[in-house]
Amino acid sequence: MPDHPTVDEWLPPHQQHLLYSFAHADTLIENVGSVLLDYVAATPLGLDNRVQEGREDVIVASIAPVPQSVPRQAADVINQLRSALEHALSAEVEHLMGRQLESAEEQAIEMPVPKSDSGLSDWFRHKRRRSLPVLHVDGVLGQRIAALQPPFGTAEDQIHPLRVLAEHSNLSKHRKPAEYALRLGRVIPDYMVPGLEITGEYPADRPLRIGDVLASVPAGTRVPLDIWPTVAIRRPHTREWIVLTHELRALESWVRTIALPTLIAGTSNVDPIPPHLDISKGYPDYSDALSKAQTMPAAERLGLRLAGVGLREQLPAIFTQVLPAISYQTVEHYVANLSDAAAVEVLERYMRVRHGRGESHAAEYLRRLLR
């Protein structure tokens, strides 16, 4: 086989259901991200100024509630990813055994996430799995399961994707909804001034609260600030706050590109299952669906959308600065009709031309775009 087997080469027919499972998870991640982009764009933080003891503080005066679809759809993503692991393992056991499993055997199939080497050994020795040699410690799937386990008892154990996925899904399925909250991402001043202090009274281990100080300057000083809030999820086992979209992106990527290929093909050195497919439509067969699937995951598409929004605001100023004879309205009309990807491409190509061939060639590139 080549160094990187294609999906057709390593994903067997009994595992083709995973294409649709990841498409569903991808749609859920996109839904979460879209709601969050709109939420943040609507400026969820109300700010106020407070002068005391010779300083002027920027404080949180109000916080818009996070839409309740966000935690619920994020939990759906996490549970879909955990289910994809379990479904793939079950299908692989039945395929390797070459027979339909009995009810008791089906109940014995699970992706273990123990907390120690002894816990993993106990899982392998459990009587429920005696009739399934592929799940024994020296069985083909037993070895692959062991390869996916966290490094028990180390700092890396707590941040390993399998551990994080299991802790999140156990919490949301069995105990309570996860903790989600608005937190402070960044505070960026337009320029530095003497005495400027950022995030004065905001501790990193909790959500934002009304009255928190985000920045402080000597009284009478003026400096524009860009304040970027972010929605975070709290990991149940470490109590650490992680940007929600980053958490979903990392877990989806690990399950799709590492865990599932390892379980099925014995290696992650393969072309991953494409994540994006519109499964609200029907497809004649798997081959047709695979041919229409796309490789850019939701997190990247959302990043492109965010970049496009920002660039459509910035590009008119760039155009008119480089081409002062062109009206601002002409540039605005052109930019408004660019897709997110096209807006990013315009800026990237402009910067490449400017860096490689100089200002005059960069200006001519922009001028051609407006013809």
Rank of each mutant, 00 (worst) to 15 (best):
Q107L: 13
G358L: 13
H174A: 03
R209F: 03
E345A: 15
E92G: 01
L208T: 07
L120H: 02
T330C: 00
Q73T: 15
A289W: 09
G98L: 12
P67H: 09
I258F: 10
A259D: 06
S327R: 13
L306E: 12
P133H: 10
L184K: 03
F124G: 11
K127L: 13
S83W: 07
A250Q: 15
E179Y: 10
R354P: 01
L45G: 01
Y180K: 01
L248Q: 05
H168C: 15
S253C: 06
R175H: 11
L196S: 01
V113T: 15
K292Q: 14
Q149E: 08
A293I: 03
F124S: 09
Y20L: 15
L370P: 06
P5S: 00
L81G: 05
V7R: 06
R312S: 00
L311Y: 07
E201T: 13
V70E: 02
H136N: 13
S131I: 11
F22M: 05
R128I: 06
L89D: 07
T262I: 05
V270P: 08
S21D: 13
E345G: 12
T238G: 04
S103H: 11
V70K: 09
A42S: 14
Q321H: 12
A289L: 04
L214I: 12
N269D: 09
P316I: 09
D288Q: 13
R50E: 14
V51G: 00
I29L: 09
G282I: 00
R144C: 10
P189W: 00
P236L: 00
D26M: 01
R163I: 02
L302M: 04
D212K: 12
I59H: 05
A91Q: 08
L141M: 11
Q329H: 11
T221N: 02
R256Q: 06
E359P: 05
E110A: 14
G308D: 04
A23K: 04
D278V: 01
A215K: 01
L132Y: 07
Q73L: 15
E247V: 05
T295N: 06
V231C: 07
E106V: 10
V32G: 04
A317S: 05
V231A: 02
E9M: 09
I210L: 04
H87D: 14
I78T: 11
P67S: 04
S103W: 09
P284S: 02
L225C: 01
G119Q: 10
S216C: 08
V70F: 01
L251E: 06
P236G: 00
L370T: 08
V32L: 08
V164K: 09
G282A: 10
R234S: 08
L315I: 02
V66M: 11
P236R: 00
F22A: 07
E300S: 09
L85W: 04
V32W: 08
L347F: 13
P316N: 01
D117V: 15
L208R: 03
H17W: 04
G282E: 05
D278H: 05
Q68Y: 06
G33Q: 07
V93Y: 06
R144A: 11
D271V: 12
A42G: 12
A91T: 07
L89Q: 02
V193C: 03
A108P: 14
L277N: 04
K292R: 15
R312K: 15
A155E: 07
T230P: 00
K176T: 14
R129Y: 11
T154L: 00
E332V: 15
Q143M: 11
Y334L: 11
Q52L: 02
R55Q: 11
R129W: 10
